[in-house]
Design a protein around this nucleic acid. Structure first.
Lengths: 139, 139
DNA sequence: CTTGACCTTGGAGCGTACTCCACCGTTTAC
DNA sequence: GTAAACGGTGGAGTACGCTCCAAGGTCAAG
């Protein structure tokens, strides 16, 4: 499929697709006339890329994952290892998100206002009262 | 506390703290000599900011949440609404992450992990074409 | 009074991820 | 053949999130 069709199917601009090709996220196969030609699975790959992006993974991280898949494409074991690695990353993100969620949820309905920087009005009994989300360990 | 102490406590550079103040993530209280002065809770707020950032929330999103907290700090109801809003956002992110995870997990141990996930669209069944990423291009 | 750690401001610069544009070639419909 | 729709390239521009100066003020210790 050509770039316009892919763009429509993936809900992404042509420019972005060309950009993704430049940075190695997509392959550069061409038709005899110079037009780009993508296999249909590219739509799925792009969906994956967009989701990963929205979740805070950088294009570089995604590209590494992608090129890892390419380089390992004759070894199912290496591939699985790669994917499991990615899975671990995702699980970490989910754990962090869950932590954030718990912190926030614990405050719903609480009557103690937890302002990050009290500047409006007097500071009403704040000492030690409102700690924000639990501090974030390691990194 | 002054900027250096906050920077050390939060594990963040002074420049970043000043930048955060400029964009409205922190308030601009000053000592008589012009030095910035932060309440201790700022450390927690910054930890929250960093975690949220790493999870893909933009500074603008975080700032909106923060200023909402300030503006609503006399109304527990408004506050709870805000937090519930944030919770919804987090749940969305978690759902996306879970989807990504499932997608990836389905490939571990599969015969051909490169083949796109059948769930996400009809997609060619052509066996030889590993439709996912392709070869690495360097400029 | 000097030194040095700490603070201030402005502004430049950088990496990431697009986004837009001008200009030109190709394909398709009429 | 001509026009519209599509494709290609290179390069500039933008937004975000920092990061790094340079030039200078503040303050406690020696």
């Amino acid at each position: 499929m050509r770039i316009g069709e892919l763009a429509a199917a993936a809900g992404i601009s042509r420019d972005t697709i060309r950009f993704y090709e430049r940075v190695g996220l997509l392959d550069g196969r061409r038709l005899p006339n110079g037009y780009r030609d993508f296999p249909p699975e590219t739509v799925d790959w792009l969906a994956y890329v967009r989701t990963a992006r929205r979740l805070g993974f950088t294009l570089a991280e995604i590209a590494v994952h992608g090129s890892g898949l390419r380089d390992a494409d004759d070894s199912a074991a290496a591939l699985s290892a790669l994917i499991e690695d990615k899975l671990r990353l995702i699980d970490e993100r989910m754990a962090d998100l869950a932590e954030l969620r718990t912190d926030l949820a614990a405050r719903v309905g609480a009557d103690c206002p937890l302002r990050p920087d009290p500047r409006s009005g007097g500071v009403s009994g704040s000492p030690g009262a409102a700690g924000w989300p639990s501090r974030h360990r390691r990194e």
